[in-house]
């Protein structure tokens, strides 16, 4: 849907999670990824003074739902668990930081 013609590199999305640390945050986020056909490529995660922060890089080539619906689903998990979850297409990072 989003891929420009002729492009072969997999499309990625970045999911960032910030909030008070509780049991099962990664489980909930990754379960939703699996449900939507989103493959997790890389996770970096730390807990600083009770605050959980995670950046997850995912491959969205095989996504089975429209991307905006996936973003909504992640945002819902965030609000249900008192977390701030942002899901962003990789192009914003590439555009901003690469010439």
């Amino acid at each position: 849907m989003l891929r420009p013609p002729g492009k072969v590199r997999p499309m990625k999305a970045v999911i960032s999670v910030i909030g008070k640390d509780t049991v099962g945050i990664i489980a909930k986020v990754s379960a939703e990824c699996a449900r939507c056909g989103v493959n997790i490529l890389d996770i970096s995660q730390t807990v600083l003074q009770d605050y959980f922060t995670m950046i997850m890089i995912t491959d969205i080539d095989g996504i089975t739902v429209p991307f905006p619906d996936f973003v909504d689903a992640m945002t819902r998990i965030g609000s249900a668990n008192n977390l701030k979850i942002l899901t962003m297409h990789e192009d914003i990072f590439n555009t901003m930081h690469k010439i």
Binding site: V14, I55, I57, K84, E90, I92, F93, N94, H97
Partner: peptide, 16 residues
């Protein structure tokens, strides 16, 4: 590959 510092910089710009 996406650079984590770049990601954090962009997130910080939007969030903070």
């Amino acid at each position: 590959m996406l650079d984590k510092f770049d990601i954090l910089e962009t997130l910080n710009m939007i969030r903070e």
